[in-house]
Structure formats: structure tokens, C-alpha cells
Design a protein around this nucleic acid. Structure first.
Lengths: 382, 382
DNA sequence: TTGAAAGCGGTACCAG
DNA sequence: CTGGTACCGCTTTCAA
């Protein structure tokens, strides 16, 4: 790989001349002839600036770090797709790391980022495993952090969509079409996105829901169903999920198998995301149950698969590009010290009504005709 | 972020002393007291080496580049998961880029890699869009290239699994259980992994198959089916897929809808991958067809979803970790000039028999009982 | 056992 | 218009 110095030697020019011309900063002061000569030679020899040298000299890397927690969820892949574009648009380059790629070692991932001297970090779908001790590591290194679709309990700047309003709307709709016993499945996380889902359901029901672990739930399920028959109720069931991976499909599949084997069905199962809903669908099919005839199922995230008539999944859609762009903007502001205070951002989502929740009008022809409804409002707290 | 120089100033030591101790190379020559002092101080102050400075001085980045073409396919995500681990195990760090993240601009991605001075590049699931002009760019920059599950027509070192043997085995099995008219759907790529699938099917049939574009296929389908009734035949149908994205599910869904609307069914549809098979499943369900009662469907890649009883998808399983490790090893050898010649590697795969291909014995209890059968042999050509 | 010094590939400032 | 020079953070060699 050719260097500026070598180009200078080739042309009988000093390295600083070549540097000024290729660096672009003061290139206009040089004669057109020299400029063209240098630029042409550089191109001919395939010169590309050395990012590392530039970073050393400038004292800044121009890099933002992106941290993922696995890309199994389609929503995470949407973020993975949008963030780099938003970052480039903001004039930064980026480096991507997935906690899973390092066997779950968060510390190692953070050290890589610090060694690369990233100027800021964006964490996608931040899980609880990312505790305050890790935020502290980044703080000590002077690296600001923003999370997109993550937990904001650690006093981090967070961008998210208003899942509370969305799940409330969904709960209201389920009631409207006649469902009374609503079951919400969540994972082991107690992070904000999860809390919002629960809050939303409770708001729709007008009362708090019991929140049970899987085993507790099955101990009381039969009695509960009998006693509450005829009234509108909700239960939150906390499923076991592996840490560092979102195996919602498997968790909801296993839970549904067990649930269906009791032969006592709720009216609707609301899953935290579409992956979970697919797990319910699989268990239902296996058991010979039909959705939505025997029970309704809903998800969240608007995965591609849910659009197919096999599922026709009622879900919640968020504008991922919007959130990613906002996250990058907030991070850039923090890097440039434009904001010293916490300035999270919440966007509204859309309720997408398809067939799985038992709507009256059936699906259309070639494509599933989906209604959508805006949920929540764009909010800037603090 | 503290530097070695600053640690030296703090302790009244010269920067080179600090450097030698923290760099590890010659640290044993220093007194135990000095060593511990430096190491403790560094830890206390959160010192982390500056990757860029180190790269500048050493003249090498210690980085390998990973290029993806989208992570929608589960097999691509498996590669994304395994490669970093294999790379770290080989003593390198890595940078990851997805062509999709840059709106499909391969050139831009390559320039990022070159500017980061990666010492080698691994391309995952390389598509045809990655033409010889791009290989040429990397060659000129002196960067060796290896592809895992990619095309090897460009004279690149390639690691792959023996899809020819696997598809042959699958074709033979389908015949064994009574299927005669076998339809193989492929995308627009003519890359080696695709060719191998076709070759495998043709080997199983003992004769070449006609290869048709979607429209051509439907022109002759009814006649063809009638004329070949009672004999074992195969057709390859080339579906339209978007470049830079593997939307196999959508392509196979659309094709199957059209196919099923003719009311003339093949005995089996073999898809290039499981995603495609899911598309067929969706179209079949929509049409009220049952798999495998009305027709058989097979895939490849062994996606998680295919294991569920909803699909019970017969598929082909490859050891991704094995291929990734081999790819990294080949790349490392090329970087260290241990191999000047082409040395690709082919591993065997496994045929996973589930219910979708219409086997006699039905699925078991909790899990789908799958038979598996080894396909092909580990081969080192050249 | 320690430190001085050269150098990696750039950037940026200033003198001529 | 062009070139000299200092410097960024780190590595490595060699002399003390």
C-alpha cells in the first residue's frame, strides 16, 4: 500500500505538499498542475489514506461503536441495517460488535471499543445483562452512550417507541372484538420496553394484572379461568429465556404446548414480539387449534413472516429508521457537548390489525389487508 | 484516556520503560517493583492501549475484514456468529461490514476495509454482485480474500459444503418415498452453491433437467406434467430475487401461489434453502393444501423454524463452525504466505429427514424425530 | 535495569 | 505556491 511519502518521492515533491493536497484542507493554495499530478498519481497507485495514522494524529477516531445483543430478532436486524446509514449521514464511521460474537463477554466487547477509541457507543435492544458496571466502564473512558430500543433505567439517553400506548390500543381492540381473558407473555427481562407492554395492557384493562412465573401460572390457571369467567382479565406470564439470546419462539412454543395441554384456553395470547407469536402458532397447529378461531394471538415488531396468510399476525410497527436517526443525533450532540442533561426520546408506533386477533372482516385477496392505527405520541421527557 | 507517556510522568519513569512493561515484549528485564508499579497504575487509571497507534507503529493492523451480504438468512447469521470467534482464536481482531448497510455499494465497503488496512478479507455467502472488478481492487491492495459459502468462480479460495452430494441424496430419498416430478427452485444467481444443487438433483435423476425462468415454466407446465406423467423428472425454475437481498421466502411464495392456482402440482418442490420452503408452506396453507399430503417440500440450511411441527422441514445441515474455522485458517495461511496456490476446501453435509418430504414414519412426541444421513466427503481440491 | 532516540503515516502550522 | 518541522501514541533497538 503506497504512502504519501512515497508519492512525494515519485514526483519529487515534499511529503507535506502531497499531504496538503490529498488531505484536502489547504489544497487550493497549490498550483493546478501540482494538484492534478498528485491526485492522478495517488489514484493510479491506488492510494487510500491510513485510517489509523489519521486517527493518531487527529487525536480522534471519528468512530462510533454499535453494540448488538444478537441478530435473531428481525427488529434487531432492522436496527443493524439503519444505524450505519444514520451514522454515516452524521459524518462518522462505525464499528459493529455483537455481544454474542464473544460468547457473551460484555467486558471484552467494551475493551475493543475503548481500544479503538470510539467517540460514542450506541447500544441496540440493550438487555438487562448490560448492567451499571458496564456503563461505568464507558463513563470512566469518557465515552457517551445512547441506547435504541433499550432499557433506560441506568440513566442512559434512550430512544424508544411508545409500547405502552401501543399495547393499550391492542388490548382495547382485543376487548372490542370480544376477547375477555388476555394473556401477555414476557421474557425474564424487567427492562423498560417490557414494563411498557405490561403498563399498556393494564391501562387497557383498567386494573393491574397478576404477574406470574410459568410454574406459578399453571398451578392456578384452571381455577383462575373458572373464577374470572365472564369478566375481562389479564395475566402476565414470565417465561424462561436464555440470557444473551432472544429465543422467544422456543419459549412461547414450550409454554403454549403446556398451556394447550390443559385444554383451558385464554381468549388471546399477546406476545412481546412476533417471534414469540410464531412459537404460539406452532404449538397451536400441532395441537390442532386454529388461530383466531380457537384463540387470538398478537405480537410486536412487524416481522416479514407475520404478513403471510399462514399467520396474518396482528402486531405493532415502529419506524426503526426514525429511531436510529434520532439515536445517532442524540449521541452526536452528547459527543459535541451540546447536551449535558438527559434527553431521551419516545416515538409513536402503529397498531397493525391483521387476522390473528379475530377481526370481523377477513383478509383480502393477494395480500393481507391490514388496518393500522397510530399509537402514542412523540414525546421528549425531561 | 490516559497514555503511556502520562503514566511515565506520574511515576517518574521514562515513556519507553512504561511501553516496554505494558507492551509485554521485554517486560521481564525490569525490576519487579517497577513492573508492578506500572501495571497497577495502568489498571487504576483504566489504561487501554490505543489500537490505532499500535497499528501505525507495527505497520500492521492485525485486523481481518468480514463482509456480509445481508443477515436475513439464518445461515448467514450463523456465519456472522462463528467467524469472529474463529478469527479471535487465530489471534486476529476483525471488522464487520454488511454490503446492505451501505445501500449495496461494494466499492465503499472495500475502501473502508482498505483504509483500515485489514490484512485479509473473508466474504460470507458471496453473491454474484461481487464481481471480478472488486476482487481486483482487493488484489491491487495486496489483501488476500477467502469466501465461506460463496462462489469460487473468481479464482478465490473458497470454503463450502458439498451441496452436490446433499441434493443428490435428497433427490434419491424423494424418489424412494414415491415422488416422481421434482421441482427445484433457485434464485437468479448462477454461483457455485446454486450449480451444485442443480448438479446434485441431476445426478439423482440420472439426466439433465430443463432450466426455465418463471414465465417460461408456466407456459409449458401443464403440457409437461401431462406428458411426463408416470416417469421420474426434474425441472429447475429460476425465480426473480432482488439483488443484495435474499428474499427467497417472498419469491417462493409468489411462485407457489401461481403454481397452485394452476391446480397442477408437482410431487415435490425442492427449495434452495429453508426460507424458500417457508414461502411454499405459506402459499400451500393459503390454498388449503397440506404438506406432505398434497406435495412434498424440502429446504436447506437447517433453520430453527423448520424444526417445528408446523413445518417439520426436511433439509440439509452444514457444520458452520467447521467451515468458518477452515476459512480463517486458509486466510491466515495466505496472509503468512504459507500457501501461494489455490487451496479451497469442501466439507460434507447432512441430510435431515423430517416430515415435509413425506416419510412413512410420522413425527414423534415432543420433538420432531429427525433422521440424518451424511452427504459427500471432505475434499481438498488442487 | 533503565532511558534516549528513531520511526510508523499521517496532520497542521509556519516560514520562505 | 512549496517545504520544513513538530507532533500524535506507541514499538523497538541500542547505549548507558
Amino acid at each position: 500500500m503506497i504512502t504519501q511519502k512515497e508519492i512525494g518521492e515519485k514526483l519529487g515533491l515534499s511529503p507535506s505538499t502531497v499531504a496538503s493536497i490529498l488531505g484536502g484542507s489547504a489544497s487550493l493554495r497549490y498550483s493546478k498542475k501540482t494538484r492534478e499530478l498528485v491526485v492522478q498519481t495517488a489514484k493510479k497507485c491506488g492510494y487510500q489514506p491510513n485510517r489509523a495514522s489519521r486517527a493518531v494524529q487527529r487525536g480522534r477516531s471519528n468512530l462510533l461503536g454499535i453494540i448488538h445483543f444478537g441478530l435473531a430478532l428481525e427488529i434487531a436486524r432492522k436496527v443493524a441495517f439503519e444505524l450505519p446509514q444514520a451514522i454515516n449521514a452524521a459524518g462518522y464511521d462505525y464499528m459493529v460488535v455483537d455481544i454474542q460474537w464473544h460468547g457473551g463477554s460484555i467486558e471484552r466487547v467494551l475493551n475493543e471499543m475503548i481500544q479503538a477509541r470510539v467517540e460514542g457507543v450506541i447500544i441496540s435492544n440493550m438487555m438487562e445483562a448490560f448492567g451499571s458496571e458496564y456503563i461505568e466502564i464507558l463513563n470512566r473512558a469518557g465515552i457517551p452512550v445512547v441506547t435504541v430500543y433499550g432499557d433506560d433505567r441506568l440513566n442512559i439517553v434512550a430512544v424508544s417507541n411508545d409500547m405502552r400506548s401501543a399495547f393499550c390500543e391492542m388490548g382495547l381492540h382485543l376487548q372490542k372484538v370480544g376477547h375477555q381473558c388476555l394473556l401477555l407473555t414476557i421474557g425474564e427481562s424487567q427492562a423498560r420496553p417490557v414494563k411498557e407492554r405490561i403498563d399498556g395492557l393494564e391501562k387497557a384493562l383498567g386494573e393491574p394484572c397478576p404477574q406470574l412465573k410459568e410454574d406459578e401460572f399453571f398451578q392456578g390457571w384452571a381455577d383462575f379461568r373458572q373464577q374470572t369467567h365472564g369478566s375481562t382479565v389479564g395475566i402476565v406470564v414470565q417465561l424462561k429465556t436464555k440470557s444473551f439470546s432472544y429465543d422467544f419462539a422456543a419459549a412461547n412454543y414450550a409454554f403454549s404446548q403446556r398451556l394447550f395441554s390443559t385444554d383451558i384456553l385464554p381468549d388471546a395470547i399477546m406476545c412481546s414480539n412476533d417471534q414469540g407469536a410464531f412459537g404460539v402458532f406452532n404449538a397451536a397447529t400441532e395441537r390442532g387449534l386454529s388461530i383466531p378461531r380457537d384463540l387470538a394471538v398478537t405480537g410486536a415488531d412487524d416481522d416479514e413472516f407475520g404478513k403471510y396468510p399462514m399467520f396474518g399476525l396482528t402486531t405493532i410497527r415502529s419506524d426503526v429508521a426514525q429511531s436510529c436517526a434520532a439515536g445517532v443525533k442524540l449521541l452526536k450532540d452528547r459527543i459535541q457537548k451540546k447536551t449535558s442533561f438527559r434527553a431521551s426520546k419516545i416515538f409513536q408506533s402503529e397498531l397493525v390489525l391483521r387476522t390473528s386477533c379475530g377481526r370481523s372482516n377477513p383478509m383480502g385477496g393477494e395480500e393481507v389487508a391490514a388496518e393500522t392505527r397510530a399509537c402514542g405520541q412523540d414525546v421528549i421527557p425531561f
